[in-house]
Amino acid sequence: MEAQLQQLKQEAIDQVQNASTVKELQDVRVAYLGKKGPITDLLKGMGKLPAEERPKMGALVNVVREEVTAVLDERLVLLEEVAIQQQLANESIDVTLPGRPVKTGNHHPLTRVIEEIEDLFINMGYQIAEGPEVEKDYYNFEALNLPKGHPARDMQDSFYISEDILLRTHTSPVQARTMEAKGGEPIKIICPGKVYRRDSDDATHSHQFTQIEGLVIGENIRMSDLKGTLSIFAKKMFGDDREIRLRPSFFPFTEPSVEMDISCFKCGGSGCNVCKKTGWIEILGAGMVHPNVLEMAGYDSKKLSGFAFGMGPERIAMLKYGVEDIRHFYTNDVRFVSQFHRTEV
């Protein structure tokens, strides 16, 4: 019986070594070690042996069984590895082929600029105020210290709907409305929106464009506060090393009035085609809110003061992205709009 056992062992080990696939190996396992296999049969047959031989034989069978199992397991690891390698080879793909496209769109460049400015001021504690695009002459002009017949009305040729109603020529009426609604309380707002002027559309003019304005009213608001605020804006929008300068100007709704230039972000101030060799780029108009504007909205101009500023997102986008023709913003050419896809933080 022992000889029989050794022969079986040798047979089994040969079979294991001959198996070339995991499947064949499993067949060998079933054939030799399974419930119906010869080794199990041998164990079952032990009952016929004399009682004193049974332990010795039992131990021997178990040794053989373990030896076969060990050889088999070792072979299994090897064959499994082979199988995996085979599978991987078969599954290999050309990863340079393009992926399934996920179609995404993006913000219009003006929205991109406007939201960037909004967020920048929101972080400084401003709220966003909006108002109607069709306005009363009162809010668009009169409440802003531009009575009928004022020479400065020439600066803005308007689209009138009736004698007293027009398409707003700036977003300042939102300021006038907000002031009126706030009834003398402090204000800190940003007003973005569409505006309209009687201009023929060309590379630098558009009868419809956007504006974004800011207004702060409170106790003892100073011109230095305006300058500090605009400096933060310029640095965040155009780069940390931007410097600003103020130049005197005139707007009927502010006194003093200024225009703000930033040091050229392209050449840093040494002079180039972007800054027309001056080193400076005009970005926005601003000033201290005119007392007439405060008083007309019910504010005591002796107690409260404020500053306001306004700029054109078109101009900022044109400067920032090098766009040469304002009409691109309103043509909605996919080849233009889709260029503003990537993010910039």
């Binding site: 179609k103 995404t104 769109g105 689209f159 398409l167 569409k194 309209y196 419809q208 309103y330 909605n332």
Partner: peptide, 12 residues
């Protein structure tokens, strides 16, 4: 995100 680009057209 759903694949459309934002346009801005004239109000008039």
């Amino acid at each position: 995100s759903a694949g459309l680009h934002q346009a801005i057209t004239y109000s008039l």
